[in-house]
Amino acid sequence: MFSQTIKFIILSMMLSFLSTGVRAETPKEPLWPILKEIHFEGKTIREDANDLLVIEAPKRAEDAAIVPISVKSLVAQTADKYIKNIHIIIDNNPEPYSANFHLSPELGMIEISTRMRVDQYTFVRAIAEMNDGSLHMVSRFVKASGGCSAPAGKDAAAALARLGKMQIRMRKPTVGEPVQAQVIVSHPNYNGLQFDQKSRRYIDAHYVKNITIRYNDTSLIKVDTGISISEDPSIRFTFTPTVAGTLQADVMDSRDQSFSLNKNI
């Protein structure tokens, strides 16, 4: 309890620093040691785990509100040994803990990508948590700024009109062959940091909380998301259908609105 309070205080201090500081500048003190303590208290993380994981992110992002980030595993998922979770941490974002992908051994290989907001020059980290509890990290430095505080949406009316609309995009799959699929949901993903001058307050956060992707009732990926995910959240992944069936995607947002779509294979 005591340590939770301390963590909360540290986190609050960090957040107030971030919100009053100049956003384009990277904080002088690296936040990672604090973040590690908050999210992986007392645990050992193997760094530069390049034999297990590859993280890809642009060195310099074209649009800080839409930064493509992908993670691949180099070791196949098996029932005995598999990556259970991949935690994504963006050190210098207002909410650094950005996503947690809960992964099934059924996935075969891990090959997932999404689009993030990046608010300042930062390390982006992927930490694989194996089924035995061990932790392995890879990271990339990304130069981008303003992705969180930048105004949402280029066409507010069009975005609102299609809120909750979903797509599952994939090639025609062959049973037994890996296939790439994309789940995308139209959502403004308001992060609570976008200021509205008329009401003189920040637009209420309204974001996608989690996305669950199942194949014939086996959960493939469940991702806990937050305000670091871009507008219109997109999850791309590879899986191997072993029998014919249905790919199902369910989305829940922070106002408990849910959206679903499925596709027969």
Partner: peptide
């Protein structure tokens, strides 16, 4: 548009 972008 101005309200949304002003602070930024």
């Amino acid at each position: 548009a101005m309200r949304a972008r002003q602070a930024y």
